[in-house]
C-alpha cells in the first residue's frame, strides 16, 4: 500500500472529519456487526474486519470477504455487492476498504 504523507492540511481535515463522524456515529456499526451482516447476506465463508480508524481519515474499516457468490463476477460487481450489503453502515462509516475473493482465490492466496 502506498503511504500517504500527512500534510498539515490533511491532518486538520482528518480531525474535523473525525469529530463529525463521532456525533453521527451509530453505535451499532462495529466490526462484529459488519462481519455478521456479510456472513448472513453474502454467504461469506470467511470475513476479516479490521478497524483502521486511528491513523486514517476517520472511523474506518478494512474488510476481507470470501464468498462463493463472487464467482464469475468482475471486481466492480463484487464491490458493489458488498456496498449494497452494508449500505446502512456505510452512511456512518467514513472510510472503507475492501478485498473480495472467491473461496478458490482465498485458498490459492493462503497456499502462496
Amino acid at each position: 500500500m502506498i503511504s500517504a504523507p500527512m500534510t498539515e492540511a490533511s491532518r486538520t481535515s482528518a480531525q474535523s472529519l473525525r469529530s463529525d463522524s463521532i456525533t453521527a456515529f451509530d453505535m451499532s456499526v462495529t466490526a462484529d456487526h459488519i462481519r455478521d451482516r456479510l456472513i448472513k447476506e453474502l454467504a461469506a465463508v470467511h470475513v476479516e474486519v479490521e478497524d483502521t480508524s486511528p491513523n486514517r481519515c476517520a472511523a474506518s474499516f478494512k474488510v476481507l470477504v470470501v464468498s462463493p457468490q463472487f464467482e464469475n463476477k468482475p471486481l466492480l460487481q463484487r464491490h458493489r455487492m458488498v456496498n449494497t450489503c452494508l449500505a446502512e453502515e456505510l452512511k456512518e462509516i467514513h472510510a472503507f476498504e475492501q478485498k473480495t475473493l472467491t473461496p478458490e482465490q482465498w485458498k490459492k492466496q493462503n497456499s502462496q
Binding site: I2, S3, A4, T7, A9, S10, A14, C57, A95
Partner: peptide, 19 residues
Amino acid sequence: MKGTPAQPMCGFSNAVVQI
C-alpha cells in the same frame, strides 16, 4: 477526489494520484 493531485487531502485519494 478529496483535495488536488498536488495536495491530496485523504490517503485514499493520494493513493489514486500515486498509482
